[in-house]
Amino acid sequence: MRFNILLLTFFFTVSWTAVYPVDLTLHINKGEVAIDGNEFSFCAFNLDESLNSSNTRIEVGVGELLSLTVINHDTLSHTFTINDVLETDNSISAGGTANFELSFQEAGTWRYFSDFSYGKLAGASGIILVGYSEMPHFFWNLFDLNKQLSTELATNNLSEIPDSYQPELFLINGTFYPHTLEDPTGLVEVQIGEELIISVVNSGSMDHVLHFHGFHIEILSARIQTDRVGWIKDTVPLKTGEAMTFKLVANQEGTYPVHDHNLIAVTNTGFYPGGMLTQIQVNP
């Protein structure tokens, strides 16, 4: 029963509109990832038992019932945590399964993660986007890592990021530029005049700051810097653990970069360009 936790959080019956439950099974996987010869340890919430460094993106409507089954394939316990929604009093033991039922009453972006150091510091952190299904929407899950430290963190031989932390890979949705351009959920491709949503979480261990070329965005929601909701910006800091929702109006054609303006993060092990860099493509 310990592993079959039923949690109803912020759940209210929405009688005036059709509500369709979203059933999803997430698998906690851990192992080695290799991208362009860069090998590192990673932990992620995936849709099946094979490790993928892009954590599953969860989409649910406002008021919809989200039924989650989380299966832990790791040899260590994990949690499924959403700050201010689902706190870390749950624990999913090695090989165990847990069930959660959630409902969100407002649109926006939330971060879910495993709240053990060997989980979240090894990459087990993803995005929940509530609402906006009627608009084109995209996801950027930011993560930074040091290859050598990633193994120590994932194996629980190191429980916190040291002061001397020197990240060398900077990921969006589990990969780095130029591979970010191969990711249809991260590469923003829309038609001129469309309004779109970008759902962003900083899963990394340092603050990041996204700069948009060609456009300003409106901050629709935030979890940490809530005083910035409603601001219209081209450069947006995302503190560690932040989850924000942006609205962008694609009002000019062309291809425009979006990147971290902490410029050490647009590199791959020191090579430029790389890292947290993707594009917005607005087609005629």
């Binding site: 070329h213 060609g214 456009f215 300003h216 081209d234 450069t235 000019q252 054609e253 062309g254 291809t255 425009y256 970069p257 360009p273 594009q279």
Partner: peptide, 14 residues
């Protein structure tokens, strides 16, 4: 921050 068009954006790749 001036939201110029692609041709004037000053990015070598684009």
């Amino acid at each position: 921050g001036l939201d110029v068009d692609q041709a004037n954006d000053g990015v070598p790749q684009t």
